[in-house]
Structures are given as structure tokens and as C-alpha cells.
Design a protein around this nucleic acid. Structure first.
Lengths: 256, 256
DNA sequence: CGTCGGCTTGATTGTGCTCAACCCGGGTGG
DNA sequence: CCACCCGGGTTGAGCACAATCAAGCCGACG
């Protein structure tokens, strides 16, 4: 990504429909996946793109949120904070994931851009109207929400019962799978990618402190499960081996 | 509830439509809340009631689940287990809550009756057909799923960041609110109810051990926040005082 | 070159886990 | 009727894992 200085004006910039939906990279995974013809054209008309810089807050918990959106590129986080500062991340929003809740005026959680993020936004009234009339949108939204609920419940197991080492291994494994899905090449030779999260964000996601995150990453490196180049770039020689460290049932996959 | 000895035959009994939907206690809170006329009549026709004894497993994670259902009375739990036996509860299903996922053949998690439970069941094919054609059902299902997702994310904060004492206080507060909602009398004189969960189930819900649960309950008793009669019956003299122990933002409510 | 933020590493502490004994109440069988 | 057992719950002692406190590293940037 090209890094550029951000002016006030650019931060507020909102470009309307600068990409046609048919060229959209998340066309078949996002909330619009099942829409065609008139519906897609309507979405095309009411959508607008907006870029957020890494670190920028997209929505504040409890504040009004006048739009819903799909993540087009980048990574955003969903989190909540207690008065004394303890923070827990409750969702990681990757491309095609959906932000906002139809029929609710305020955001339930803080939404923050972890990397630079491009959103495809829809004004809430227009989108709500579509939800009320379009089975394609509603069914897709239901499906995505059920998937998120399953993911949240998986995460509850991690938070409630896994050890620090298992937590780190689980996070790395999830990111690995995400990256294998993106790069269709074979993964037998190992996988490498950049961590989209800082140590602090990882800690908030996993219910740990940054020190513990750092120590466990060092331990996994020492044990040969991962290799690091700089702080952010990870290389995983054998993903299956790392998966053994997650505590999860691993035999669910290949047993031939 | 009347307690009766259960024979094999009764355990397997399935009574069809022994209550009309219009008399149903969860009529306006369940998945059918928005249905009327023909749709309600159709639901009435395809529904069947089934009772499960406390402790009975309603569905096994990974196994086929041929129905979806609403909890009519009683409490069921949703949980997952790791190979080595560590268990995490991921949902507490109270009257009007929904079991099963349209469009998926297998259960994602274990569903177990915590108390005696009455379900209002729908065969999956018939119900899926309704989801495909009825906006009323789909919208209500979407709304309920979004609510569950919010609840799951709240629970993630508890699991990841709260202390043992805060966890116990939070659970008791949630049960208190549920009971205040049921009994419309005023709560200023305190609230009393029976815990629907064993110490072990509480531990699995909160990501703790039974010993820690027991110790923290004793501590809250010692400090005067709760009173116990036997192991199960709890009396909460001042719910607001207990809520202070949860770590949650408490001033969100009345500020007049 | 100095500073600053993100990260790592070390020393120590403390919360909640483990292991173990015991309590309590209800059900059963002698 | 009482003795016994059994499951659920409580309490205690010691321990371990992750949190806390603290120092220092590294790379980017001014």
C-alpha cells in the first residue's frame, strides 16, 4: 500500500460509486452476494466508498451510526472497553464482513480500522428499506449473522478455556487459513504473511496482556513453529504442526 | 411444575399440537412472534411439543439435528467440549429462545436440558420452506440472531477480562434481570429465585472451576450482597448493589 | 543524534487452578 | 430405623500460569 499524508479534506472524502459492483472484489461474499438485476443496480446507486486510515475510529459504541457497510479491503476491529480501561476485542472484520445492524440507530461496539480500510457504505434508511423488501438481502444477512454467531461462540471457548500458548496458536492458525483462502497456491511449503494486528490488539483479542503475547510468540518461535522477520512478518513452515498447539480437535480434517 | 416419575415411553413421547398457538406463553417473543393468519396456522399444524428431563441431551455437536425448536419452558444450555474434557458453555437458552440453524443439517454445539424443558419443535424441511417464503419468520429470526450475537459479544468481555468475582456477580445479575422481567411486581424489596444451574454449569459458563465459583459465591454471601437458602435458592436484597460488583458501566441506567 | 512507540525480556506477585479432605442431604437397602 | 452411599457443594493448602512492575531493545522519524 502507498502511504500518503492525510489532509482533513481527504479524511472526510467520500467517493460515490467509483467502482461498479460487477468489478467488486467482494461481490460474491458480501451482503450483496445474492442480489442481481434491479436490486444490484439499486445498491450500486446508493453505495459510496470511504477510506479510513489505520487507527481511525469508524464508529463509537453507543453513538449514532448512520450507515451500514461492507469491508472491501483492510482489517477493522470490533471492541468494547470497561470504565477502568480493560478492553476486549469481540470481532475481527475482514474483507466482505458487514458493519452495523439494520434497525438499530446506535453502534453496540467500537469499530476501529486496524489497517487502512475501504468501506462500501449504505445509508441506513435506504438499506433498511431494502432489508424490508428484498428476500435476497435478508437471507444473506441472516446467513452471515449466523456465521458470525458461530465464530463468536468458538471464540468464547478460546477466551474461557484455552491457555496463553493455545490462544496465540489459534490466532495464528485463523490468520493462516484466511491467507491460504486468498492465495490459491498450495500451502504445503508453508505460509507467510504480515500480522494485521499490533501486540496490543492481539492481547485485546485474546484476553491477555501484551507481555504474555510477546512471550508466547517468542516461545513458538523458539520451538520452531513460526519464524519472524521484523515484528510483523510471520512465516509458518508447517501449518498443521502449529494447529496441534491450538488445543483444537485436529483430526476433523484429513484422515485418509 | 409438577414432578412426575418418567417412564421410557414418556421420555419418547411427542404430543402434536396439544396447545393452540394463541395460548402459547411465548407467542410474542419467539420466532413466530410476527406471524399471523395463514402462517401461524401452518406453524400450528407442523409444530409438536416434546419434554426433556433435566440432564438429557437434546442435540450432540456434529451430529445430525433434524428439527429446529423454540424453548417454551425451562432452561437449556449450549456448550462445546475439548478433547481433554475442558468445557465452555456458549449460550443459555431461556423460554422463547431458538434452537437450531436453518439451512444446516448438523448441530454446531451440544444442547443439554439444564432443567426440565419443553420444546416446540418444527421439522427442518417444513421450517426451512417457511424461511424461504415468509418475510415475517425471516425478519424475526434475523432480529433474534442479531440479539444473540450481541449477547455473545458481551459474554466475550466477561470471559476475557473480568475477575472471578465480577463473573459471578454478572451471572447473578443477568438471572436477576430475567426474573424481574417475569415477575412484574416491584423489585425494590429485593429479588429471590432458584439458580437454574449447578455449580459445575456455572463454572462452564463463566470459564472458571467449581471451586472458584463456590468460593466467590461464599464471598458475596459473606459481604452481604446475596443470601442463600440451601444451595440453589438465592435472595438478592439490593440488585443495584450487586450490579456494582460486576465491573459493568452502571450509570447507563437512571441518572435523574 | 535523540526521542518515541512498539516490542521484548526479566523479576516478582497474585489470582485462580489443582489436589485433597470434608460436609450435607436425599435415596437405598439391610 | 439406621447405616451407608453417592452426588453436589464447601473449604483448605500449595502451586502454576499469567499479570504486574520494571528495564532495556530496536527501528522509524524528526
Amino acid at each position: 500500500l502507498i502511504k500518503i499524508k492525510v489532509t482533513e479534506q481527504m479524511q472526510a472524502s467520500t467517493k460515490r460509486s467509483n467502482t461498479d459492483c460487477s468489478d467488486c472484489p467482494i461481490r460474491f461474499a458480501a451482503v450483496c452476494a445474492r442480489c442481481e438485476g434491479d436490486e444490484l443496480e439499486y445498491l450500486n446507486k446508493i453505495k459510496s466508498y470511504r477510506t479510513y486510515q489505520a487507527g481511525q475510529t469508524i464508529a463509537w459504541a453507543g453513538e449514532e451510526l448512520a450507515f451500514v457497510a461492507s469491508v472491501v479491503t483492510g482489517v477493522a476491529t470490533l471492541s468494547q472497553t470497561m470504565e477502568d480501561g480493560r478492553r476486549q476485542m469481540v470481532g475481527l472484520l475482514l474483507p466482505s464482513d458487514f458493519i452495523g445492524r439494520p434497525g438499530r440507530r446506535t453502534a453496540s461496539f467500537d469499530v476501529v480500522a486496524a489497517t487502512d480500510v475501504v468501506l462500501c457504505k449504505f445509508k441506513k434508511p435506504a438499506f433498511d428499506g431494502l432489508v424490508a423488501t428484498s428476500p435476497a438481502i435478508t437471507h444473506r444477512l441472516l446467513e452471515m449473522t449466523l456465521d458470525e454467531l458461530d465464530a463468536a461462540r468458538e471464540w468464547m471457548l478460546l477466551l474461557g478455556r484455552k491457555t496463553a500458548r493455545e490462544k496465540i496458536a489459534s490466532l495464528l492458525t485463523i490468520l493462516t487459513h484466511r491467507n491460504i483462502a486468498l492465495l490459491p497456491g498450495d500451502a504445503s511449503g508453508g505460509v507467510a504473511f504480515d500480522l494485521p494486528l499490533t501486540r496490543e490488539e492481539m492481547a485485546d483479542y485474546l484476553g491477555l496482556t501484551i507481555e504474555t503475547v510477546s512471550r508466547q510468540i517468542s516461545a513458538l518461535k523458539r520451538d520452531g513453529f513460526i519464524k519472524l522477520s521484523g515484528k510483523r512478518h510471520v512465516n509458518i513452515p508447517d501449518p498443521a504442526l502449529l494447529e496441534n498447539e491450538t488445543g483444537d480437535d485436529t483430526d476433523g480434517g484429513i484422515l485418509s
